[in-house]
Design a protein around this nucleic acid. Structure first.
Lengths: 170, 170
DNA sequence: GCAGTATCGTTTCACCTGAAACGACTGTCA
DNA sequence: TGACAGTCGTTTCAGGTGAAACGATACTGC
């Protein structure tokens, strides 16, 4: 049935960079998430919170939002689950009571060490698909692409024309 | 507050490849999805269905699942929306009535041409962040990483030990 | 001090999601 | 022919998701 379609302006999805990135990232996340879930009962968002906390030690939820590129609702829920599991402690900041200071509990600290070990090993295996110099190059390319998205939209202000009337939610 | 934590086995999320991929892919998808949504009222999944259909012309839902790395529920819902909007037609396969043959309506065909044009322009702008030879290199690296995920798990059969008792759903 | 504005974290809401159950159909094997 | 297993596409279900509303707190200018 997959007959090649006739001559048309055609676009190969599998050579379309956004698609390539999206598929690989999804596959990677899925694999890693299964790993964390199976071994530690951690969801991706929870692991990310712990990862930031492992690096920047006492830290507010908002600080985690900044370092993690998750939105604050997601962080709030992940933090909630971690606290309920006794892996994190939350106390209010002495001089700014809007802030909640998050820290590992001893159990959380130990779990963090375990998880990083597994994460590191998994990444080493995964990255083994390319050479170390390619790895560095890849890092630079991904950073360059990411920076581009932070800048201007293509074509400047006039790029978006003929907008679709969007069916408003809510 | 982000005081550097004391000496511990530490892991920098922003140099952890799965994280890099996931963040960039999410940012990219988001931008592009906004573009499709604003201009054409299309969701990402719908655009992907159309993209496959633009390349492999008459095609079953299942064929789309294969070429699109989306699960069949997602494809089924996206196809349903496209049909409701009159962009696709669905008829049953003459010799295998389990299959549904999908095809563009004239309107769908026209919209497809418009969308690919925008997609191509957007990608050209995006990929402008790296050189053409880097782009080729990137394609090869992503493919190599993807292939690795299709193969064995790290460490073989014994890699997964000490599993967490998972709270069973349902 | 006091309005007005901004920030922090939680909650609500409408929607999206994949896994599993399902009904319809086909292919296989005896 | 008739069980049985497999495939296709839809639906259901439990739960995850971001946008927005929210309450609490802090800052700013007067």
């Amino acid at each position: 049935m997959p007959r090649r379609s006739p001559r048309f302006s055609t676009l190969r999805l599998d050579r379309f960079l956004p698609y390539e990135l999206s598929v690989l990232a999804a596959k990677t996340s899925r694999r890693l998430a299964d790993e964390y879930e199976a071994r530690f009962g951690l969801q991706m968002a929870e692991w990310r919170v712990m990862a930031v906390l492992g690096y920047f030690h006492p830290m507010s939820s908002n600080g985690i939002v900044v370092h993690t590129s998750m939105d604050k609702a997601k962080v709030s829920r992940a933090v909630g689950r971690l606290i309920r599991r006794g892996l994190l402690t939350r106390r209010s900041h002495p001089s700014d009571r809007r802030l909640l200071v998050l820290e590992f509990s001893p159990r959380g600290r130990r779990l963090y060490a375990e998880v990083t070990e597994v994460a590191r090993a998994w990444e080493a295996w995964f990255v083994g698909a390319i050479t170390p110099s390619e790895r560095r190059r890849l890092h630079r390319m991904l950073a360059a692409l990411s920076r581009r998205l932070d800048g201007e939209r293509p074509g400047g202000a006039g790029f978006l024309t003929r907008r679709h009337r969007r069916p408003r939610r809510r």
